[in-house]
């Protein structure tokens, strides 16, 4: 009987020790993403996850000797999902803005891309002529920087339709329900196949990445504010990957221009 008690106590202590070690141990890092967001994150035809951020994330996890687990989550619930502990970080092209920084802790920025206006092929639009835009229907993805930009600068001029996913925006642009859309430029160019001769879409403005209070200082990984040590590990890993050429190698696979920060 005494042996039993001892054994029990020993098992319990071991169990508790393992438990407390696990809480600080990041051998498995769960990262929230909103799919698809080509070329940053999307599924190949066989279902395999890929994209610039997926590869970069995997490289960070390798550096930290951890496993990345990718958790899918719709964009408009992605910060609440982080705070509800559904995952440990958001690595989903989230731009660093003041509003978001009040809720989450950001890593150092790891890339930056501009946004631009797009329309159906053959349509004549002059974005710089504000009066000509009056009454047009503009589609954006809900709660993105692009949504904020259009709402703030064109909100009283155009009719804004907000969608849950970027795919729905393109569907309705194709269906001629929308006159214009304002999207992240690399994502739009890759989804719209702009290089192809028979593409149905066209870019109708220059690249836009100002003003800073809307577009922020680039894209960062978001963590819960109390997970300061995890954010620091990510910063360290990202800095090392930018230094040793891993970052550049991944970037060159997806872009023919520089997005490094």
């Amino acid at each position: 009987m005494r042996h039993m008690t001892l054994l029990l106590a020993a098992t319990l202590t071991a169990g508790l020790a393992a438990g407390s070690a696990q809480a600080r141990d990041y051998s498995e890092i769960r990262l929230g993403i909103d799919l698809p967001y080509e070329p940053f994150m999307y599924r190949q035809p066989d279902g395999e996850l890929t994209g610039f951020e997926i590869e970069l994330g995997e490289a960070v996890c390798d550096y930290l000797e951890a496993t990345c687990v990718w958790v899918e989550q719709d964009w408009d619930g992605i910060i609440p999902g982080l705070l509800a502990r559904n995952y440990d970080g958001i690595m989903s092209s989230m731009a660093i803005t003041e509003e978001r920084a009040q809720r989450v802790l950001f890593s150092e920025p790891y890339y930056t891309t501009p946004s631009a206006w797009f329309s159906l092929q053959g349509r004549e639009v002059d974005i710089s002529d504000r009066d000509s835009l009056e009454g047009l229907v503009v589609g954006v993805q809900r709660a993105t920087l692009q949504d904020n930009y259009v709402s703030e600068l064109y909100g009283d001029l155009v009719e804004i339709r907000r969608y849950t996913s970027g795919d729905d925006v393109l569907n309705d642009l194709r269906a001629e329900r929308l006159d214009l859309t304002f999207l992240d430029a690399p994502v739009a160019e890759s989804r719209m196949d702009l290089e192809a001769e028979d593409s149905r879409f066209q870019r109708v403005s220059d690249f836009i990445n100002q003003p800073e209070h809307i577009f922020g200082q680039g894209v960062g990984v978001a963590f819960r504010p109390r997970d300061r040590d995890l954010a620091e590990r990510f910063n360290e890993a990202l800095a090392a990957l930018k230094e040793d050429g891993t970052y550049d190698a991944i970037m060159e696979r997806y872009f023919n221009y520089d997005i490094k920060l």
Partner: peptide, 11 residues
Amino acid sequence: ARFVYARFYAP
């Protein structure tokens, strides 16, 4: 409600 939720992250 979804707009306010997404804008302020306040479900």
